[in-house]
């Protein structure tokens, strides 16, 4: 099961990378929308950290977005 999951991920990543290299994307001078602060993947880092902390202490799954900032002995 685990191996299958990992294979799926490898294939997905591969497709994205190969696809990315060939046709996807914009020219370097066409990034005005992508450069808007709201378009950043971590546009609201503190909100994200708060959410991660709350859900870490209430749910079994956590992280995924990036690195967890370290645990807590939450109750």
């Amino acid at each position: 099961m685990r191996i299958r999951t990992v294979n799926c991920i490898a294939i997905l990543l591969g497709v994205l990378v190969i696809g990315g290299c060939s046709t996807l994307g914009v020219k370097p001078w066409q990034r005005e929308i992508l450069a808007r602060p709201q378009m950043a993947l971590n546009a609201e880092p503190i909100d994200a950290a708060i959410d991660d902390h709350i859900y870490f202490s209430k749910e079994a799954a956590s992280g995924g977005r990036s690195f967890g900032g370290g645990g807590c002995g939450c109750n």
Binding site: I9, L12, L13, L16, V17, G19, G20, L24, G25, V26, Q30, R31, E32, I33, L34, M39, L41, G64, R65, S66, F67
Partner: peptide, 18 residues
């Protein structure tokens, strides 16, 4: 962690992390 971030168009950015 490994991840790919891809610009899909002028207004669409996607990221996949494992």
């Amino acid at each position: 962690l490994i991840g790919v971030t891809q610009v899909l168009s002028r207004n669409w950015l996607t990221e996949l992390n494992y």
